[in-house]
Computed example of a mutant assay.
Amino acid sequence: MEKSELQKDKIIKVAQSMFSEQGYDATTTREISRKADISDGSLYYYFPDGKREILDTIVQRGIESRTLIIDDWFSDIKTVEELEAQIIGLYEQICSIFEDEDGYRSFMITIRERPLLSDAQSDWLIKILDNIQIKLGKKFHTLLPLLKINEDDLVNATGAIVAIFQKSLYDELILKNKEMISNEIKKKTEAEISLLIKLLTK
C-alpha cells in the first residue's frame, strides 16, 4: 500500500473511532488531525471536503465490505437440510460483521448519523436484507416440491426468515446497545430459523 493510502487509512481509523465514541458533530477536524499526528493541511490534502468527506468514506467502505461478504454466500442446494445450513451460516456471517471493531463502529456511525446520510448510505442494512430475501426466494423456489408452501407464499416465507435476522440484530445492537450478538442470542435465533424451516417442510 502506498504511503498516501496508509495516511488516508490512518485518518479514517482515527475519525471512525471518534465519530463512534463522541459523535460526528462533537468531533472537529483539528481533533482528528491531532490524534492522527498530522497537520490540518495534510488532512485537507487527503480529504479536501474535510470531515464530511471522511464520514462519507467511512460509510461507503463499510457498505462495500459488507456487501461483498453477503453477495456470494449461497451455493447450489438440493435438500432442505442444505438450505437450512446455508441460512444459519449466512446469519453467523452477518453476526461476524459486528464482531469486527471497524464493522461495529461503522454500523453505529450509520445509525447515529442517519440524518446526515443519503438514503443509499443509511439503508445499507435494509438493502442487504432485501438482497438476502431475493436470493432466498430463488433457493426456496428450487425446493418447492419439498415444501408445504406454494409459489405465492415464497415472499412471506423468506420475509419471515429475514425478519428473524433483523429482530436479532436490532434488539441486540440498537435496543440493548450491545457491541456484538451474544452466543446465547445466536443459538436462540438459529433455533427459530430451524423451527421455521421444519414447519415449512413436508
Rank of each mutant, 00 (worst) to 15 (best):
K3I: 15
S4K: 08
E5D: 12
K10W: 04
S17W: 06
Q22W: 07
A26K: 15
T28S: 15
R30S: 15
I32E: 02
S33D: 08
A36K: 08
A36F: 04
D37K: 13
S39Q: 12
Y45I: 06
G50W: 02
K51V: 09
E53K: 11
V59R: 02
R61C: 02
I63R: 04
T67G: 05
D76P: 07
D76K: 10
K78A: 11
K78H: 14
L83H: 06
I87M: 03
G89N: 07
G89Q: 10
Y91D: 06
I97A: 00
S106W: 05
P115G: 04
P115R: 03
L116M: 10
D119Q: 13
Q121K: 10
Q121N: 09
W124D: 07
I132L: 08
I134P: 01
K139W: 01
H141L: 07
T142G: 07
L144H: 09
P145D: 11
P145H: 09
L146A: 14
L147R: 06
I149H: 10
N150A: 11
E151V: 11
A157N: 05
G159V: 03
A160T: 11
L173R: 02
K176V: 00
N177Q: 14
K178W: 04
E179W: 05
K187H: 09
E190D: 08
S194M: 06
I197P: 04
L199M: 14
